[in-house]
């Protein structure tokens, strides 16, 4: 009897273990392994354009004391946090409408439409924006037709934001909507029954309840914007040196992979801290 029980327990453990195995394997193979390699690489040397294993702090000293590194870091952080805030603000009314005002069928169609942009390469979408925003582009012509001479919008902060919104908005809307759809609707009814107006229901009931969705949506927008290379290069014209551009520049000239590894590690550290802080805030008990 005892042995049959322990066999059953063991087989249950094995069953659970097999299903759990892919995650640690994936993390070890595609996160921890490369991360260790990246950290190790940041201490290597480059001699005659060739990576040479070493253990020296020169790359860290060089990059962390370079004013252009900190300028790029600050710029990237500001751009990413601005994009996250902007996208969250744009996504909020869309998600509210999808979750509370659309029929189930219409909701499925609209959410499906927000997934459609992912069918096309982001690079292609950014190139398309160039056609709209360039000197003789469609937007300029429309503005000129109503008497506004705005010049080209390409390589401006606005173009940069347009690109990042293109990249992140659909995802943020989907995350926010899922969060709102899982909201217990009786809370809203209760708020109305207690005499709250629509604004109070929104700010005192709905938004606090869906805070994790809003914060996680903003976090994803931040992560994507912080690491984006395409928008900064093709809509920003390489004029706003971000951390990703700095990585490319560092590798391009002198094959300085170890210094590029320092930049990449600083980016990873920033994203990890931001993610942990965001998650803590999202699930904080009030």
């Amino acid at each position: 009897m005892t042995s049959s029980l322990s066999i059953r327990r063991l087989s249950r453990l094995a069953y659970g273990g097999i299903w759990s195995l892919p995650l640690p394997l994936w993390l070890a193979g595609f996160f921890l392994g490369p991360m260790i390699l990246l950290i190790w690489l940041s201490f290597w040397d480059v001699k005659n354009f060739l990576l040479t294993p070493d253990f020296q702090l020169e790359n860290w000293k060089k990059m962390l004391s370079a004013p252009y590194f900190w300028a790029a870091y600050l710029r990237t952080f500001i751009i990413a946090i601005s994009a996250a805030a902007l996208v969250s603000l744009i996504a909020l009314p869309c998600s509210l409408a999808i979750s509370f005002f659309l029929s189930v069928r219409a909701r499925m169609v609209v959410l499906g439409l927000f997934v459609v942009p992912f069918f096309t390469s982001y690079l292609v979408r950014v190139y398309s924006w160039q056609i709209y925003l360039t000197e003789n582009g469609i937007v300029m012509k429309l503005l000129a037709a109503i008497g506004i001479d705005s010049g080209s919008l390409l390589n401006t902060p606005l173009a940069l934001m347009i690109g990042l919104v293109t990249l992140t908005l659909p995802l943020v809307i989907v995350i926010q909507s899922i969060s709102m759809l899982s909201l217990d609707k009786t809370l809203i009814d209760a708020a109305y029954n207690l005499g709250c107006g629509p604004c109070r229901v929104l700010f005192a009931t709905v938004l606090p309840a869906v805070r994790p969705g809003i914060v996680l949506g903003a976090l994803f927008a931040f992560i994507f914007s912080f690491g984006d290379f395409v928008t900064a290069t093709y809509l920003g014209g390489g004029k706003f040196t971000t951390m990703s551009i700095l990585i490319a520049d560092t590798v391009k000239s002198g094959q300085q992979w170890p210094r590029a590894a320092v930049v990449a590690l600083m980016m990873i550290a920033t994203l990890l801290i931001t993610a942990l802080a965001s998650i803590a805030f999202a699930y904080r008990r009030t």
Partner: peptide, 19 residues
Amino acid sequence: QVRGFYDYGGVLSSLKSGE
């Protein structure tokens, strides 16, 4: 005075478009 920094493709398209 600088509008942007471009790779090969970007140089072609920016000069052609008048950017």
